[in-house]
Design a protein around this nucleic acid. Structure first.
Length: 444
DNA sequence: TCTGGGGTCCTAGGACCC
DNA sequence: TCTGGGGTCCTAGGACCC
């Protein structure tokens, strides 16, 4: 049995933990660059505000109803997420963090749980403990597969103390599937939903009753086949390929395959120096991520994006791939490659709305072969020590205290670091209550 | 002029998720 | 004027090799 624990409206919940007066009031959190709505309190949903709606379109409505608006504060949300996971880990050692606000708990090792009512009680305990220790409300859905656990979570009561739903047998989940539109099923997105409704398949149960081979044929090959099995209570999102050797139903991937850092600019940029500083900054952040995961990259892709919403035809993103002579996670080498890609890519006079750096061809660090172009073993060791020192200082004294010159000079105005000219908008950001020394929550 | 088959690697694109 | 970012997986098709 799996439990899916979902922190509903997680970003709003994080803001409310430190601003309890916002309880019961409409609150929204905006995406990067204050672009669109990515988290809404129930009160905000009740006003008709939709997920992903552009901020500039709903601004009058927000002001009219005095909706509290926040720019996104990932330092805060990431830290709160870590605390929530920590609490959940006390209920089972098998916690799979699925996203910043969701985790699957595997209950199969807990053999004292025998009855459906035990599952319900245990799920409620998870919810109550997370709430008491972190202030973050959650809903819990429990079922034999991840896909059905998602469904159970969705159908869990949104109010009251319980907020847990168990779908233990087909007698539980079939009526549940019959109640939900097909596009609420995990794995059925916009395109598939349209395809299905055109064929008269409107509910989850109608989808589940189609033959397995139909899903394989029409819903993305093995992806559709897995979905069918999951809807019939057969867990297969973590199949071991050895057990299914008649078919390749499970790719065997242990670690991530790419790392990216991309941002929209506050306003379009065309100057080479500005773009270079932005790209160097993204390369730096991506390199840090790489080192945190103990990985190194072979390929650096630079991304420049023009206006995504421009009516003119043609591609809106342009990429250049730089192949490294050896895999690395050295910030300096990655910046150098990224800037080389930028020079290839940039067209003078074009205004770019966003840029980014994508690192692929990943492998565990320390596996680089010494070769003609890769420098000596001593060089590599020196680089690793330098990166370690830099990460240590930045972790201790704040991000980017130690930085590459290519990122540009941080201008110091009245003791405050000035934002780079390409920085996105973030007009409504709350303090980093839990992670910034100078922004800690104050109790008066 | 006729001209196989299998394997691998890479890329682009489409679909999905949060 | 203003529309996020970071991932995943799968498939098809081309290049290349033997």
């Amino acid at each position: 049995m799996y439990a899916l624990v979902d922190c509903n409206n997680f970003y709003v919940s994080c803001e409310r933990v430190f601003a309890p007066q916002l309880e019961g009031r409409p609150v929204v959190v905006l995406s990067n660059n204050d672009g669109c709505l990515i988290s809404r309190s129930q009160e905000a949903k009740d006003l008709g505000l939709k997920m992903g709606e552009p901020y500039h379109l709903v601004r009058p409505l927000l002001e009219q109803h005095r909706v509290q608006v926040f720019s996104s504060n990932y330092a805060l949300y990431g830290d709160m997420s870590r605390r929530v996971v920590q609490v959940m880990s006390s209920f089972t050692p098998a916690v799979e963090v699925y996203s910043i606000d969701e985790a699957f708990l595997d209950f199969s090792g807990l053999d004292w749980i025998t009855k459906k009512s035990d599952l319900l009680t245990y799920g409620q305990q998870v919810r109550n403990t997370v709430l008491n220790y972190t202030g973050i409300p959650t809903c819990v859905g429990i079922a034999p597969t991840k896909t059905l656990a998602k469904l159970a979570n969705r159908l869990a009561p949104r109010t009251g103390p319980t907020r847990t739903m168990v779908l233990a047998t087909a007698a539980d989940w079939e009526p549940a599937l019959a109640r939900v539109p097909v596009d609420t099923i995990w794995g059925v997105g916009r395109r598939y939903a349209r395809k299905l409704t055109e064929l008269g398949i409107n509910t989850g149960l109608e989808l589940a009753r189609l033959p397995e081979h139909w899903l394989r044929r029409h819903l993305g090959g093995v992806v559709g086949q897995r979905l069918w099995r999951e809807l019939h209570g057969q867990p297969c999102l973590e199949w071991n390929p050895a057990e299914w050797d008649d078919d390749q139903l499970q790719p065997n991937t242990a670690s991530r395959h790419s790392v990216t850092c991309t941002r929209s600019f506050g306003r379009p940029q065309h100057q080479e120096t500005v773009l270079a500083e932005a790209v160097a900054t993204f390369a730096t952040k991506a390199a840090e991520k790489l080192r945190r995961h103990g990985q190194a990259a072979h390929l650096v892709t630079v991304i420049l994006g023009t206006d995504r919403f421009a009516p003119a035809p043609g591609p809106k993103t342009h990429t250049a791939v730089i192949s490294l002579p050896t895999s690395t996670n050295d910030t300096g080498m990655l910046i150098k490659a990224a800037l080389q890609g930028l020079r290839h890519l940039r067209r003078a006079g074009t205004a770019y709305h966003r840029a980014g750096v994508l690192l692929t061809g990943l492998e565990p660090e320390g596996q680089a072969q010494l070769g003609l172009f890769s420098g000596s073993a001593a060089d590599q060791q020196r680089s690793q020590q330098l990166m370690k020192a830099m990460d240590g200082l930045n972790a201790r004294f704040g991000r980017q205290l130690v930085r590459s010159a290519a990122m540009g000079v941080a201008k110091n105005v009245d003791g405050l670091l000035q934002k780079p000219v390409w920085a996105g908008r973030a007009a409504h950001c709350s303090p980093r209550y839990t992670t910034g020394w100078d922004e800690l929550w104050q109790v008066r």
